[in-house]
Amino acid sequence: MKQIIKRGSFFTLMFMLLGCLSLYAADNDLITEQITIELEKAGTLPGRIGGSKKYKITNLKIIGEINGTDLNMIREMAGRNSKGDSTYGKLSVLDLSEAKIVEGGDCYYYDYSNHSYYTSDECYTSNDVIGRYAFSGCSGLTSLTLPAGITSINNGTFSFCSGLTSLTLPAGITWIGSEAFNDCSGLTSLTLPAGITSIGDRAFWDCI
């Protein structure tokens, strides 16, 4: 009996070690240098990156127009899909300084907050607006540079982005929606442009 137990313990230990080695190999396989992708047409980011690199890129810069299809891809790369479920994405640094948000493409987020599990509000992109819940739950993002041309940040846009420590908002922003930075617990610095005329309820709730 003792021999059987010891053998079982040995196999358990081996499986644990193999699992750790697999995780170590996966982390070593990450692409850490900045990847710059110039999009000639909105909605083409998934085809430019492909499934093999989707969860390996940690630093991404996008040039050109992006719509809901592209934003959905970015969310998955940053650790959350359109339903808010976690993914294997490791994206932590995102540079959209030379990108432009345009309307069109797929739904990038399903908002269940006012509905049952089976019904939701679908979120789509609009021109020059960081839409509702655009980066919600993407807690792995540590650095984000926003498009220079955006005019507003919508409700819940950065909610639960606990990895963000600082953010500078572009000069053209005039409106910040409700709960836009809700539970951004790591945020220690935020630069607001002088032209802001409205900040929604609980915009900085639980920003400790």
Rank of each mutant, 00 (worst) to 15 (best):
T197V: 12
S189E: 15
F181Q: 06
G163R: 01
P193Y: 10
L164H: 07
G156D: 07
F158N: 00
P193H: 09
N182M: 11
D183H: 08
I199K: 02
S166K: 11
T174P: 06
C161K: 05
F160E: 13
T168K: 15
L167I: 10
S189C: 12
T188W: 04
S162D: 12
S198W: 15
I199T: 07
I199V: 13
A180D: 07
E179Y: 15
S162H: 04
T174C: 03
S166Q: 14
L192I: 12
N155T: 14
N182H: 14
T188L: 08
N155C: 12
F181M: 01
N182D: 15
N182R: 13
L190N: 07
T188H: 06
L164K: 05
A194K: 13
I173M: 08
L190G: 08
I173F: 05
T188M: 06
A180C: 10
C161V: 04
L167S: 02
N154F: 08
I176T: 07
L190F: 12
T157Y: 06
S198K: 14
L192H: 06
E179L: 14
I196F: 00
A194P: 00
L169W: 08
T157P: 03
S185V: 08
P193V: 10
P170E: 11
S159C: 06
C184Q: 00
I173K: 05
G195S: 08
P170Y: 03
D183C: 04
E179V: 11
S159E: 10
I199E: 01
T157Q: 03
L169S: 03
L192G: 03
D183T: 06
G156W: 08
T168Q: 14
L192Q: 06
I176V: 12
N154G: 09
W175M: 11
G163L: 07
A194F: 04
T165M: 12
D183K: 09
G195E: 04
N154R: 15
F160M: 09
T157H: 05
T188N: 11
L190H: 09
L164W: 01
A171W: 02
T174N: 09
I173R: 04
P170L: 03
A171I: 15
L164V: 07
L167C: 02
L190V: 14
N182G: 09
L164R: 04
G186T: 04
E179A: 13
T168W: 10
A194D: 13
L187Y: 01
N154K: 15
L192V: 01
T165G: 10
T168P: 06
I176C: 01
A194E: 15
S162Y: 04
G163I: 09
G186S: 00
A194L: 10
N155V: 11
T157W: 06
L167Q: 05
N155F: 08
G186Q: 04
G156C: 09
T188C: 09
A171V: 15
G172F: 05
L164P: 02
W175Y: 15
W175H: 15
D183N: 14
W175P: 00
L187N: 00
S159R: 11
